[in-house]
Design a protein around this nucleic acid. Structure first.
Lengths: 168, 168
DNA sequence: CAAGATTGATCTGTCAATCTTC
DNA sequence: GAAGATTGACAGATCAATCTTG
């Protein structure tokens, strides 16, 4: 359903906009900047030390979480927060590198199963220490246990709102 | 300077890795997911309602912060957290759309000045309400003033660590 | 025909030159 | 020659088909 310029789902019908006050704006800018730089820094560390992007690393990691090192493509897409199309291209490349392979699901041919290869598992084991050390250095080690629980709580509250927002 | 596979700047010399415990892992996963979804949601809202990417919106916004609606390319790159190369490509596209234009700095020809056009300013005024409403809906309105200050504090502490980490 | 998955075209970002001005 | 900026080639992501299986 097309939307004309004046009809924005997120805009009130009145023309009164609740702008951010100074404190809100400062908090938002700091948080937005931290998110961007955190992502960039984790990406560079993985790319430099392991020749993996963040999502490639997490594809290996999420597969390794499974007892049989296996997930359907659509499940892997869900847990890595990627579109199926993006994941399909990405797994094609990782398949060419021998890190993941694919097979049709024997129980239902509509599904494709992504399987962590031995080489892929080895790659994960090699790159995990450097990645975890970076996550510690940038985030975890900065905070007390209580603060980390707060950060988790904040994150979950935002996730709940994103869920609601995206549903509409 | 090339780095061999075994030498990772972020890995200790011992082979003891401080893995994340369950709480740390849960906090990190929630936070990482919230960051990814927040970014995706803000990107889609802007793309859908204003035909702007997050960084395109912020290029307009940061230029509009200046009294003369002007910044050097390198300054704009810094405040939008983009590489100069990325920004150069991006501004070329926005220039073609008439939202920004460029001129050599008359005081020193090595610099290029990016200038917000009237059309670019209008575009920003049109898209700001929807974007701000989304930031409110997803983040700001979820938290009390005190919690927002905490979130800001957390973000600034992470930024300080990122700064130190990236410096090395 | 619906859901899962893939594909190809297009767009954007990155990296490594290259160009320009001082 | 160094800093700012641009460029072009390539890698990766998105979007809209398309294909396949049940």
């Amino acid at each position: 359903m097309a939307r004309t310029a004046g009809q924005r789902s997120t805009q009130r019908l009145t023309n009164s906009v609740r702008w951010l006050n100074h404190r809100e704006e400062a908090a938002w800018r700091a948080f937005a900047l931290a998110m961007a730089k955190l992502r960039d820094t984790l990406e560079s560390q993985l790319e430099r030390d392991a020749d993996l992007s963040f999502i490639e690393y997490h594809s290996l990691a999420r597969l390794s979480d499974e007892p049989d090192h296996t997930l359907r493509m659509s499940e892997l897409a869900a847990v890595t927060n990627a579109s199926l199309s993006r994941l399909s291209h990405l797994v094609s490349r990782m398949e060419a590198r021998g890190l993941i392979r694919r097979e049709p699901d024997p129980t239902d041919g509509r599904f494709t199963i992504a399987i962590l290869t031995n080489a892929g598992y080895t790659k994960l084991l090699e790159s995990a220490p450097g990645h975890v050390a970076t996550v510690r250095a940038l985030v975890i080690d900065e905070f007390s246990a209580a603060e980390l629980q707060e950060l988790r709580g904040f994150s979950e509250r935002m996730l709940a709102r994103i869920e609601t927002f995206t549903r509409d």
